[in-house]
């Protein structure tokens, strides 16, 4: 199981790096688009659609990394009030609930991705890009997110992780 936890963490980190690079790429492409339009006075056709898609992709792909590094904001009022033992149970409940959502979206996005792939859907813009390539970011993101939540729950249950990142001494 430890191998699993480490492997998933590595996978999440890899997704995070990919997301970060996509954001950087988006910046460069937007600037390239403005350059093409204003300095070269030429048509800029594919850029805005492409930038939009890679940032959506960055959102889904980056999400597991943000979970790994506790970056998703939450309301920790109740956890702060509870004693450590109860806090562990609450953290298990919270993670399991979130896992349900991620699993539903994983299933849903896989079905949707397959539809786009089999139907060979294209964008309706002049660029006519293939949609399944973009859509892939969603099942990948939610897939790794689901794996990451399973790892989190395991670490919580076995005491490897503190609930909500709070030590037993942390109180309001």
């Amino acid at each position: 199981m430890d191998v699993y936890v480490r492997a998933v963490a590595a996978l999440s980190r890899a997704c995070g790096v990919a997301a970060a690079l996509m954001i950087l790429m988006a910046v460069l492409i937007v600037c390239q688009m403005i350059f093409v339009r204003t300095v070269l006075q030429e048509s800029a056709i594919w850029q805005s659609e492409f930038v939009t898609f890679i940032l959506v992709a960055a959102t889904f792909m980056g999400s597991p990394y943000v979970l790994l590094t506790r970056g998703h904001v939450n309301v920790d009022l109740l956890p702060l009030y509870l004693p450590h033992k109860a806090r562990i149970w609450l953290a298990l409940l919270a993670s399991s609930l979130a896992l349900i959502f991620c699993a539903v979206l994983l299933w849903d996005s896989v079905v949707w991705w397959l539809e786009a792939y089999e139907g060979n859907w294209l964008t309706s813009s002049i660029w006519r890009a293939r949609l399944w390539i973009y859509y892939a970011a969603m099942p990948i993101g939610f897939g790794v997110l689901t794996l990451q939540y399973i790892a989190d729950i395991y670490c919580l249950a076995t005491g490897r992780d503190m609930p909500f990142g709070m030590t037993p001494e942390t109180r309001l």
Binding site: H72, N74, L77, L78, A94, A98, C102
Partner: peptide, 18 residues
């Protein structure tokens, strides 16, 4: 209720929807 469990806000909104 879902928010109070301390789950991420994003996933709480999603789960309520589900």
């Amino acid at each position: 209720l879902f928010l109070a469990t301390g789950m991420p806000v994003a996933f709480a909104l999603g789960l309520v929807t589900v």
